[in-house]
Design a protein around this nucleic acid. Sequence first.
DNA 1: GCACGGTTTGCATGCGTATGCAATGACGGC
DNA 2: GCCGTCATTGCATACGCATGCAAACCGTGC
Lengths: 378, 378
Amino acid sequence: MKTKRNKRNKRNKRNKRNKRAKRNKRKRIIGGITALQLAKKLRLSQSTISRAFTDAASIHPETRTRVMKAANSLGYQPNIIARSLITRRTNIVAVVMANLTDPFHPQVLEQLAQRIQSSGRQLLLFLVPPGQHIDDVLPALLQYRVDAILIASATVSSRMAASCAAQGSPVVLFNRYVPGARVPAVCCDNVAGGRMVATHLWGTGHVRPAFVAAEADVTTNRDRAQGFFRRLDELGVSLHAHEIGGEFSHAAGYEAACRLVQRRQPPDSIFFASDVMAIGGIDAIRAANLRVPEDISVIGYDDIPVAGWASYGLTTVRQPISQMVDTAVAALGLDAPKIKRPPNRIHFMEGALVERKTVMRRSRDLRADRPVHLYHRT
Amino acid sequence: MKTKRNKRNKRNKRNKRNKRAKRNKRKRIIGGITALQLAKKLRLSQSTISRAFTDAASIHPETRTRVMKAANSLGYQPNIIARSLITRRTNIVAVVMANLTDPFHPQVLEQLAQRIQSSGRQLLLFLVPPGQHIDDVLPALLQYRVDAILIASATVSSRMAASCAAQGSPVVLFNRYVPGARVPAVCCDNVAGGRMVATHLWGTGHVRPAFVAAEADVTTNRDRAQGFFRRLDELGVSLHAHEIGGEFSHAAGYEAACRLVQRRQPPDSIFFASDVMAIGGIDAIRAANLRVPEDISVIGYDDIPVAGWASYGLTTVRQPISQMVDTAVAALGLDAPKIKRPPNRIHFMEGALVERKTVMRRSRDLRADRPVHLYHRT
DNA sequence: GCACGGTTTGCATGCGTATGCAATGACGGC
DNA sequence: GCCGTCATTGCATACGCATGCAAACCGTGC
């Protein structure tokens, strides 16, 4: 027994010597200096260095400035990795998106970045690889112990969301929600938006409105459609046509519009599920030698920058992006004193109709069965 | 002496007891289990668990599958933070951008994300806050000990780049370079691109070409201009006008084009420093009741998605984004065996002219002093 | 049976910081 | 002068994992 311990002790000592020698040899090969090295130069303890960099710590102001000055001149910075290991907070927020193809997404991302960075955190961007489901790739993210996960324009199963939260990373959805599930979300009030569009088309005298959908089962799409349909119904206008584009893209909008325009009786107005689709639609209508808005009025959703450019001048519903982003970041509960997270609310924010040049005021007596314009195929 | 040591020992023992008690109380409050806990359940050592998750480690295949199975069922994942502390690699690549306003940027970002993620790393997105210089905010990034930094469409001082590299994070510029400095960069060959444009305009019979610049001192802008000017010179065509837009934006392009169009003698063709500007230009030309390309031909640079949309159909120079991204990620040298980083090269990649509908073939005998079209102010 | 090489596992230790607790110092009131 | 109080600092320790080294195990050839 005793012999064994002795042996072990001897070995330990030898090890220590070796380690120390090795460390000395390779010190300052790479990276900044450590708190301990800085402490030695200042004849202080490592704890004091740490306290100098911790806001709430008890430390003499003079000592702190002394440390800070030395840190600056020696290029010392606390190692965030080591810090995270103890505090269990990385100060990183993950943002998950499917892609950046739709101009709406970069707008959101940009605001998110600003908002997150100005709170002293960093943004880890995760794009879901095409063909993969988000539930399958989230675990890879969780390894990074991010403080929160914001999923924009995509959904997760509520089981997955729960498992994320269990690991310490609350999840918030943006621009999507899981109906009836307990995943907090921030979303434009798309139902109200759809209603606005219906009201506007009715108010401008349209009698043959059409809707071009994107992905049928996505809340964004579905709510806009429902609001639109319901309101039309209330106003006694019947939906003239309903096309499924398949995705939120220029091409999908273009093709759907082509189909609408080729009908014997084209609609007098089209509400597209998004701006990019609407712009595709405008291009298609023009390609068919029809005019927007004289022959067909067009309305989109989002108010992306292109919508405001002169060649389109798209009338659309603007999403209150910065308000939504603020709400979403708040919903992450990062600064909350971790006492009881607020209930898993779904926030709906009001959009606003932006009138530009793609909706024409028509006289109400326009007969439904008279073609608006002779249709030429080019 | 002896008494002192005894005292200390006693204290230590007490401390240990306390700590252990505390740990037991709070175990499993949050986060997944640790390697040690998993090890105990499997009656293995923590090292073995670690080895199961390390590819190159020496471990019995059966043991590894046993560990993996248990890890799956118990939800164990190695803590990347702790791992990074030892390996000194975070597997995070930082991407720095000024903004996402220009549609070119999201395109780049998307490809970067895919490329970085598929190499098993994560992307930390950093947007330079408006009004701040990148040199001043980089230190905040460096704290995160990212494996590499890719700066897109922005520049750093070469002093800063060196200091990053010294801290262990190599820097690569994308779509910008510091002439004569030792900062590696990947860039479209903008000089060649500018030359292509000149050749094309000359080949299609234009005699009064104009250039609309963005920010005069940015390499992207300057190289395109220089290539354009030199080649025009070689071809014996004299530059008709040179406007400074001030920034790469729709508005800047619009206003510059307005000024050009209001001249007594407008140009017969305009080369804009970027696609967004060119589109602004088209909108301006049309707003002035002139036609593109009949009255004025327009060429852009980048080939952003909007350029291909029917209402613009912009002829432009396409940047080989995925090739550039591949090169850039390779230049980060992430998988290099850390032996001598390759020389700080600047890679120039060839763009390609994409002909669409904004350049008109004119007859060469167009007299330079005859106005192309009567100019109406609306 | 034993020595030997190879494979697999365990043992210590350290990465760089935060933090509870004890120690020290400064100061005021009695 | 002594005690209590408060401010400041140092001492240990732990966070969760990777890794060098030694130990244990296993098979092979003699």
